[in-house]
Design a binder for these strands. Structure first.
Length: 496
RNA sequence: GGUCCUGUGGCCGAGUGGCUAGGCAAAGCUCUGCAAAAGCUUCUACACCAGUUCGAAUCUGGUCGGGACCUCCA
């Protein structure tokens, strides 16, 4: 059973076969570190973290490249050319690189909390100015770019004559070329559809580099082409990013790289859908951003409580990456409860002892369980259907709890199946979905204290001193620890 | 305006033409000193209108609504 990936370029699911057997190259558009990461950023990096994990599981040696855009893009239409990073730095009276460092650190901090694996290479745009300039020179040599007043533009019209510009994003080239909009700063371009490879820097522009065309800074699209080519080669397997990047960013990347390397750069294009908030895309320009720090601390008007990064990760994986996902405080609370329940079932499962029965006494149950377990692989192979994986794990939760409670007898499921269940549950939950326990109970001192309190409470209960046992339970509940009486007279506790 | 996507039960969210997705919430029951948890059960929806089909949430056309991109964006 082979992995199938939905390829945005062909708009269909395709069997995944890497260019180099045994190896997979994946490039994902990283953050622009001119501001704090927000909930919207969580989706692509969690999505592609799961892709990365799963490809490794399939046995590929994966090189995962995710850039940091620290050079700042320019805003070219309707505004003066100005570097976003440079502008904000002036406002905050910080060095541009200081600002970039600050937000890079914050980004790393947040995604460590999300339990995202670190990419193999995390190149910065400013660290690859030379590569970008080289690439631009190559494109000029090939005759697909022109220089105007110290800026360099890609000639889309010429490219479109013998290439399929617009295929990825579904644009019609004639319409792009015949755009009637008259915007400032367009006069340098031969055509409105052309895009900048290099921009001449205005005097107030802080971030600037010397180039064959004068002092300036790179265009937005060229960094990804340059770095992907450098670390993954002229053709690589997967390029990922948000759907909002389809046009013009990825379309332009294809054009640049194709001219430069004489071949299509990417075999499988993957795009995650957006997170919406009240039906609107979350983004700086919409003024509806929930920063990750606000999400984790609960300090945002839309939130009634803090949310653990794992709750957010779980929430995101409960929907398919290509579907839009609407955020709400209520939806996150639902995910938090669901996740806690699932994780408790997992903890319970780990403690279950396999029965000696080699054959199951309840064949119907046995086959249902085996089927649910086997489907997990199918679901992942079907374009990473994490919601279905999670749904099947939830199917297993009542089975696990019933085994623990004795509502299902141990022998009803064969020992092999129970072992398989333990193995798959841990594998999918932890290794593939990348989820972690969110309980804060893993503290030796707390465990010691709780052990003592539980002993006292057990003694009280044995003496039918319910006043004492209830007092212990009640007061612990008030400070956020809940005690549950088990069927066999034991007690368990959890930190809320 | 152009291109594309989308509309599922109280809420979130899967759905490959025929078989209960799943979660949260709610209700009832079981268990329990009480509670919590857990288990069982119930709530069976696919914007609207036509069409194709033995059969459509799933395909086609139309209507209405929502969204994305076309400008920085995950």
């Amino acid at each position: 059973m082979a992995l199938k990936i939905y390829n945005s370029y062909t708009r269909q699911k395709e069997i995944f076969e890497t260019i180099t057997p045994g190896h997979a190259g994946m490039y994902v558009c990283g953050p622009t570190v001119s501001g704090e990461s927000h909930l919207g950023h969580a989706r692509p990096y969690i999505t592609f973290d799961v892709v990365y994990r799963y490809l490794q599981h399939l046995g590929y040696k994966v090189r995962y490249v995710r850039n940091i855009t620290d050079a700042g893009h320019f805003e070219e239409e309707g505004k003066e050319a100005e570097d976003k990073v440079g502008k904000k730095a002036l406002l905050e009276k910080l060095e541009p690189m200081e600002l970039v460092q600050k937000y890079t650190n914050l980004f790393h901090w947040a995604f460590k909390k999300f339990n995202c694996l670190e990419p193999s290479i995390e190149p910065t745009a400013t660290g690859h100015i030379v590569e970008q300039i080289n690439m631009i020179e190559k494109i000029i040599e090939e005759g697909y770019a022109y220089v105007v007043n110290g800026s360099v533009y890609f000639d889309v019209k010429k490219y479109a004559k013998n290439h399929d510009y617009g295929k990825l994003s579904g644009r019609v080239i004639d319409e792009l070329l015949s755009t009637t909009r008259e915007l400032e700063g367009q006069d340098e371009k031969k055509d409105t559809a052309d895009f900048a490879l290099w921009k001449n820097a205005a005097p107030e522009h802080i971030m600037r580099w010397k180039s064959p065309w004068g002092e300036g800074f790179p265009g937005w699209h060229i960094e990804c082409s340059a770095m992907a080519t450098k670390y993954l080669g002229p053709s690589f397997d997967i390029h990922g990013g948000g759907m909002d990047l389809l046009f013009p960013h990825h379309e332009s990347e294809i054009a640049q790289s194709t001219i430069c390397n004489h071949r299509a750069p990417v075999k499988y294009w993957m795009h995650n859908n957006m997170i919406t908030i009240n039906g609107k895309k979350m983004g700086k320009s919409y003024n509806n951003v929930i920063k990750l720090t606000e999400l984790f601390s609960g300090s945002h008007p839309l939130l009634t409580q803090p949310f653990h990064p794992m709750t957010v990760r779980f929430f995101i994986l409960q929907s398919h990456y290509r579907s839009p996902l609407d955020f709400s405080n209520e939806a996150l609370i639902a995910s938090e409860k669901a996740f806690k329940r699932l994780w408790e079932a997992f903890e319970t499962l780990k403690k279950l002892e396999p029965d000696k029965s080699e054959t199951a006494k309840d064949e119907e149950l046995e086959s249902k369980v085996v089927n649910w377990l086997n489907e997990l692989d199918e679901f992942m192979n079907d374009d990473f259907s994490t919601p279905k994986v999670i749904a099947n794990l939830f199917e297993l939760a009542p089975i696990i709890n019933s085994l623990k409670e004795g509502l299902i007898l141990p022998g009803n499921i064969s020992s092999n199946t129970l072992l398989l269940m333990k193995e798959k549950f841990a594998f999918y939950l932890e290794d593939i979905l990348g989820l972690q326990n969110i309980s804060e109970a893993d503290n030796a001192m707390l465990q010691g204290i709780m052990g003592l309190l539980i002993d006292i409470r057990k003694e009280a209960k044995a003496k039918k001193d319910f006043a004492t046992s209830d007092k212990i339970r009640k007061q612990l509940t008030e400070i956020g620890i809940s005690i549950k009486d088990e069927k066999d007279g034991g007690m368990s506790w959890t930190v809320d």
